[in-house]
Design a protein around this nucleic acid. Structure first.
Lengths: 183, 183
DNA sequence: TTAAACTTTCAGTAATTTCTGAAACTTCAG
DNA sequence: CTGAAGTTTCAGAAATTACTGAAAGTTTAA
């Protein structure tokens, strides 16, 4: 399985970006390769294409499966397992968001809730708690916003963006029609 | 400058999360400390409070300034510089998004555009290009969506979320009123 | 039950990232 | 000027993270 120069460029790039997206270089490369390659790939083929050890490949596949970005695909008559993307690009992107939210937001929300509970032992600390509250609410809103994105799906998102005016504009518009419903 | 237990917990946590948010542990701690502490802090006070070297503190302050998360604050009569947050929590959060977009999305968009340009040298590669196109468009939409979030501002976002119905619902509603405008 | 085909685990090594502290630099008062 | 008060830089040390490859494990066919 030789990668074309086009695929090679993309794979290398996704490797470099991988670390910024929450996984490491090889895992990023593996994902790109599996997504871009039409045919299901075996662990060995992946290891060969990327020139990485079989052990590392196994670890990487495990990680990609834990992120639910790839899934196994059994080919009748073949002994070994093959791997394919776990869904459309949209699905994969959502999985990445979801997973990152779990790692980057949820633990903080949880801590902030705990700290807000504690009774402040000083004037200073009351102010600190107020700040923490503000951060908590912001994270909550951002989470809700990204949830909206997922609920929307790719087509509606596209429609919305093509509208040009932006969500703020639509909201305004709605307020005028139903002023009773606005906050 | 002794940190209260409340502040200590928050600072330590933001340190741990820091690495997931694009900066390292100490930079995360420094940011939390500066944001939670009412008074402007000097580099030395920060180094002492967090028990880190003066050199490291200097690096961290530089990084936080490059992210535009803190700014210098001169106190008349004082020789040294002090540091305070560069804005409200909302502003800080937006700066973080912005910076991450630059690091995590923009380089990929740029590469994808380049690769899509190249004339495909095989059937295979045409298919790969189609996939890359799909990824590109998705990233573009996501970027636009997060831009919407920033344009909205905290109050409107809050209003929207309290509406409960979600953006999809509003969009639907709008379509019914102005069917000609839908995509 | 054996052995071939394949996968996973993990101890040790390699690579990368972060941190320290001493030296170099800057600024300003006297 | 001079030196005190402050800052920045950066080479090397420490800590963390990723990778290899050999050994142990699993599955299936005969």
């Amino acid at each position: 399985m030789k990668m074309s120069p086009l695929v090679t460029s993309a794979v290398l790039h996704f490797g470099e970006m991988g670390s910024r997206w929450g996984f490491n270089r090889t895992v990023g490369q593996m994902l790109a390769l599996i997504v871009l390659h039409e045919e299901p790939l075996s662990a060995q083929e992946i290891a060969d294409a990327l020139s990485i050890s079989r052990g590392n490949t196994s670890m990487g596949l495990k990680e990609l499966q834990s992120w639910q970005l790839i899934k196994q695909h059994h080919i009748p008559g073949e002994r070994k397992e093959f791997f394919i993307p776990a869904g459309s690009i949209w699905v994969l992107a959502n999985r990445v968001f979801e997973e990152r939210r779990k790692r980057e937001i949820d633990p903080t929300m949880s801590l902030l809730r705990d700290l807000m509970m504690e009774s402040a032992s000083s004037e200073q600390d009351s102010n600190v708690q107020a700040r923490l509250h503000e951060i908590h609410d912001l994270l909550e809103s951002v989470t809700a916003w990204s949830q909206e994105l997922q609920n929307l799906g790719p087509e509606k998102l596209d429609t919305l963006m093509k509208l040009g005016a932006g969500v703020g504009r639509i909201l305004e518009f709605k307020d005028k029609l139903l002023p009773g419903k606005s906050a």
